[in-house]
Design a protein around this nucleic acid. Structure first.
Lengths: 220, 220
DNA sequence: ATATTTTTTTAAGCTTACTTAAATTTAAAC
DNA sequence: GTTTAAATTTAAGTAAGCTTAAAAAAATAT
């Protein structure tokens, strides 16, 4: 079993790729992993030797296919655990991220397969993130648009919120900004990138920070 | 949160105490933790500084009350996870020990309380080991006798099997030597300490190794 | 009671995953 | 196209948790 640090490293490169970034910068990783740039450099060499990333000094970091496999396993564990904590134990969607950050590191494939079956093979976790199957295949999912970039007048469905500060997730829940909720873009404000939306018949203003954590699916 | 190594260290001192040994020798710990005696010496100093064990060079290791509290938390996590794996996910009692060895290290108190409630607050795990409650209190349990020391002619109930080699646990299951099963001691053999027992109407010979993992409760 | 054996500790060294500080490479500004 | 700024790497060092080998203490045998 690969170390915790390596799992986190690979996972975050994959998450960048999921967001559309073909490669990940050292400084970005240093930031999300809360370590120094030097530590990233160090680890990059090791993971390169392990055959898990493509590494060329001063260039962005890219997963090898083996590295991606590892990353997908970590994400599978994380997202299945989140689903379990919410669906089976009734925890709030704002509480489960941190717990899953721990559990993701050392549960066996066998255990995860059992949990997957127990949950009836969910495709998405409580935050709308896709769950890779045991072979590392992601479920089909519709094209998503960041709320930040949604069009005025259009109606959407909330499809995914990014694991971030759990205070934001808690806030989203209270505001009715949950997975599946319908949302209409009323107005966008240039001066601070806030957005005026209609959700559950109520108008509200969402800050740029909040709107950057929400992904939408366009309703036809 | 205390490190994995420290958790394992404290847990094993507690388990020795559970078996009736007031203190634990360095070499015993080195053996079960699979590290050198030097590593035990090292760690003993650190845990002593942490206030988790009483340590005097060349003397046996004893938990402080704080150390015992930590050990009980680890055991609570371990045993609740084992129960969950067997009862909820349907895993075999021979498979769950290793998985629980991992999970015990980093699940939060909050999570364990939820699992405890989900399982309806069990007093004993699938191997018959008592599960401490959230305050560290052990459930009441009857006096147990090692099968090894049971009396010829008496009838007992299997109350607990020790976490050991999972091959032994698997063997016990197949032989019907499960928690709650009734067992009668027919004969004991001095020359190799094997025991002839009656279980489910069948006679069988149990080796010393096997009989040392089984604890019994006397039937009146 | 002394000699031998066993247990434990000390000493020196290794690996992992970090740190800070300095050097280097790349990118951006003018 | 230099100069400057930003990103990255290298170098040296640290803490945790180990290792092996040697030294010391405790237990056992005779």
């Amino acid at each position: 079993m690969i170390t915790f640090s390596k799992q986190d490293f690979l996972k975050n490169i994959y998450k960048q790729k999921e967001k559309g970034n073909d490669s990940t910068s050292a400084s970005y990783l240093a930031d999300v992993l809360n370590v120094s740039n030097a530590a990233i450099s160090d680890m990059s060499k090791k993971l390169s030797i392990d055959g898990l990333i493509h590494y060329r000094p001063y260039k962005g970091l890219v997963l090898t296919s083996q590295g991606e496999k590892e990353a997908l396993k970590v994400l599978r564990r994380h997202r299945l655990w989140e689903m379990f904590l919410v669906k089976t134990l009734g925890m709030d969607w704002s509480e489960v991220h941190e717990e899953a950050e721990n559990l993701e590191h050392l549960s066996s494939d066998q255990l995860m397969d059992k949990i997957d079956a127990f949950l009836d093979f969910p495709d998405f976790d409580p935050h709308g993130s896709p769950i890779p199957d045991r072979d590392g295949n992601m479920p089909d999912s519709p094209v998503l648009i960041l709320l930040n970039k949604a069009k005025t007048g259009e109606e959407y469905k909330i499809a995914r919120v990014m694991d971030s500060d759990n205070k934001i997730i808690k806030y989203l829940g209270k505001a009715g900004l949950v997975i599946g909720a319908r949302i209409k873009i009323i107005d966008k404000f240039d001066f601070d990138n806030s957005i005026n939306v209609l959700i559950n018949g109520k108008e509200m203003i969402l800050s740029e920070k909040v709107s950057k954590t929400i992904y939408l699916e366009l309703l036809n």
